[in-house]
Structure formats: C-alpha cells, structure tokens
Simulated scan of single mutants.
Amino acid sequence: MKGVLLVNLGSPDSPTPKDVKPYLDEFLMDERVIDVPKWLRNIIVRGIILQTRPKKSAEAYKKIWWEEGSPLIVISERFADKVKKQSEIPVALGMRYGSMTIKNALSELSGKGVDEVLLVPLYPHYAMSSYETVVVKTMEVKDEFFPKIKITTLPAFYNNRDYIKVLSESIAAGLKGFEYDHILFSYHGIPERHIRKSDPTKFHCKIDESCCKTNSVAHHTCYRHQCYEMTEKVKENLGLSNDKVSLSFQSRLPNDPWLKPYTDFEFERFGNEGIKRLAVITPAFVADCLETLEEIAMEGKHQFQEAGGEDYKHIPCLNDNEAWVNLMVKWIGDWQTKETLPV
C-alpha cells in the first residue's frame, strides 16, 4: 500500500529558552547544517551558541507565535490536512527537528499498512542543510525501524512549470494594490562551502557570475543556481522588468563566507539609494516561519525604514494556498497511479 510523508523543518514546542535550547541543539548539531568535525561542532554549538542563543531566539519566536502554536507547525498541519482530504492514500506529516519526528510519521503510515512511501521534503530547492538532511534522516529512520518500507523521494521542484505558475499567481495576489519601486527575492542563506561540497563534478561551482549560467550536472544539487533560476522563471511568468527585481540571501552566521548579497545589507542599500516602496518575497520557504515572519516581515521592515525606505510589504509564502494544495495532490496522484514524478 502506498502513502505520503510530508516533511518540513520543525519548531520548538514553545517560545521559551527551555524548549528552544534542545531544538537548536538538534538543529545545529546536524552535520549537514554546521559541517565541521563533531568535536569542533560541539565546541561551537554547545560551548558557544547555546550559551546565549536560546534566550534571544525565544524572544524572536514570541513575536510571531500564534495562539494555536508555532506558525510553521500550524500552517504545515493545515496544508497536510487539506492534502489528506483530497488524496486517496494515507498522508502523514513529520518534521526534521523537534518533537513531531519523522519516526512518528513513518510509524503512523506503517500502522495503516503502508509499505511504499513518497517522501516530500517541503523545500523547493536542493541544499545539504535542508532537502538533503531530510532525505538522509528519513532513510536512517527507515533502515533502523521500518526496513520493509520502500521510499521514493520527490525531486526539488524549484523549476517545475506548474509550481512556478502557482507561486507566481500567489505573488501577484500579494502584490495587488501595492505600488512598488522594487521587488526583492530573499532566499535562505547557506555557507559558500556547501555549494562546493554539493557539486558532484568538484570543479564546476565557482560561485561567480558564470557557473550558474553554464549548463552542468552540478545544477541538480546547486542551491545558488536553483534560486537564480526560480527568480528568472517567476520574473518571466509575471512579466517583471529586470531593473525592478533583485535577489539576496538571509540568515547567515558570522565569521564565515555565506552566499551574497546579504538581505540585511540590501535593505540598507535600497534605503540609501532612494527606493521608497519595497516588496519582499521569500520563495525558499513553502510555509511562513521564524525566518519570514520575524526576520523579514518585522526586522526587515525596520531595517529598510531605518535606511530611509517608506512602504514595505512582505508577500506571504504559499502556506495552505488551495492551488498549492491541489498541485501537491496532483503530484501524489501521478506517483500513485502512473509512477511518475514532477520534472
């Protein structure tokens, strides 16, 4: 029997340092997030970051926490519930980090007689710290606890024509009535070394202005290329002019080269250059979360206006958008009946 496992990032159980600390520990101790030897990761995470970061992060979570709980969890559950109602096979939701574990989700599916699973990492792009770690963790859990289950993984869908259409329509709806001077596509940042580590050729990715535009097998696992390609496809779909659109990367750690340009630097630059009305899109995420609701919608607005900007609008993620739900149901149906996956 077939079933579906949807997996997103995860969240602390509450916006308190007590619950944020173990969540951050699990997240940051992931070797695909902070990819240094374990002894060094222990020093960085448990010896330095976790001494102060939980309190600061808890304060950020409190700003965006809903009465029902973590926005990411609530939105993901709404999305999953809608997909379940329209699907003919069992659907379960798990998180890479936190108490809503992948193991529990697979157990739920197994208990319903499922022995063939479509794994859906809820990330449009491939990155070792998001898409890849979900796949690796799921396979580890499967091998240890559910060895008879067969798993097929949905490919990254950053350039899928139907997904681009759904995303573009959602962006257009968010922009309706807003007179913008500029649109910023802000993607989650990753260290530059992750790009090189994910390059199967070990020579193509130079992180310059040429490699992302030169066709290569490396693009299948190159997060930077995929962000640029998604931006271009949405621009084309919506008929946006090049001079009014740009791209940046957010959420970096200090003392390490991450993908540029940096989103917070761009907010300051826009204000200084006289851009008064800014719209910001966060298409690395399918559901609004701390990085979109606090870092972009709140802090980003403050940074932009401090630099001289005036009108600012964050365009929501797809969340439980009906067209997005319908597309996921279609992908599931195609896999269930035709054994095909989106390309």
Rank of each mutant, 00 (worst) to 15 (best):
residue 292 T to A: 02
residue 78 R to K: 15
residue 50 L to F: 03
residue 315 I to M: 10
residue 87 S to F: 13
residue 200 P to I: 13
residue 4 V to D: 03
residue 10 G to N: 12
residue 308 G to C: 04
residue 118 L to V: 06
residue 284 A to W: 00
residue 208 D to G: 15
residue 58 A to F: 06
residue 309 G to E: 08
residue 294 E to Q: 15
residue 89 I to W: 06
residue 63 K to L: 15
residue 21 K to V: 06
residue 272 N to F: 04
residue 132 E to K: 11
residue 58 A to Y: 07
residue 46 R to P: 03
residue 106 L to P: 12
residue 202 K to N: 14
residue 141 V to L: 12
residue 87 S to M: 09
residue 24 L to R: 06
residue 48 I to S: 00
residue 22 P to W: 07
residue 214 T to Q: 07
residue 299 E to N: 13
residue 276 K to N: 04
residue 17 P to T: 00
residue 122 L to K: 07
residue 222 C to D: 06
residue 328 M to W: 04
residue 168 S to E: 09
residue 158 Y to F: 15
residue 115 D to F: 08
residue 206 K to S: 12
residue 272 N to A: 11
residue 286 V to F: 09
residue 176 K to R: 15
residue 113 G to Y: 07
residue 249 F to D: 04
residue 205 C to E: 07
residue 108 E to N: 14
residue 235 K to V: 08
residue 157 F to N: 07
residue 217 V to S: 11
residue 174 G to Y: 01
residue 289 C to E: 10
residue 10 G to A: 11
residue 86 Q to V: 03
residue 288 D to P: 04
residue 57 S to A: 15
residue 132 E to F: 07
residue 267 F to E: 02
residue 149 I to F: 07
residue 176 K to H: 13
residue 81 D to Q: 14
residue 44 I to S: 07
residue 106 L to A: 11
residue 47 G to K: 04
residue 68 E to T: 08
residue 234 V to K: 04
residue 286 V to Q: 02
residue 66 W to V: 00
residue 39 W to A: 12
residue 61 Y to S: 14
residue 188 H to T: 00
residue 203 F to Q: 12
residue 257 P to T: 09
residue 109 L to M: 06
residue 320 D to C: 03
residue 186 S to C: 00
residue 43 I to R: 00
residue 254 P to Y: 07
residue 335 W to C: 05
residue 205 C to W: 10
residue 66 W to L: 15
residue 155 P to E: 11
residue 326 N to L: 00
residue 301 K to H: 08
residue 270 F to Y: 12
residue 80 A to Q: 05
residue 288 D to C: 05
residue 11 S to K: 04
residue 130 S to R: 05
residue 185 F to E: 01
residue 328 M to Q: 05
residue 125 H to A: 09
residue 231 T to I: 01
residue 203 F to D: 10
residue 10 G to Q: 10
residue 290 L to R: 02
residue 115 D to T: 14
residue 304 F to Q: 08
residue 247 L to F: 00
residue 60 A to L: 14
residue 271 G to V: 13
residue 283 P to C: 08
residue 34 I to C: 04
residue 58 A to L: 05
residue 199 D to M: 09
residue 58 A to T: 04
residue 82 K to I: 03
residue 94 G to V: 09
residue 210 S to Y: 14
residue 64 I to Q: 10
residue 305 Q to N: 13
residue 235 K to R: 15
residue 22 P to K: 11
residue 240 L to Q: 02
residue 177 G to S: 04
residue 315 I to L: 09
residue 100 M to N: 13
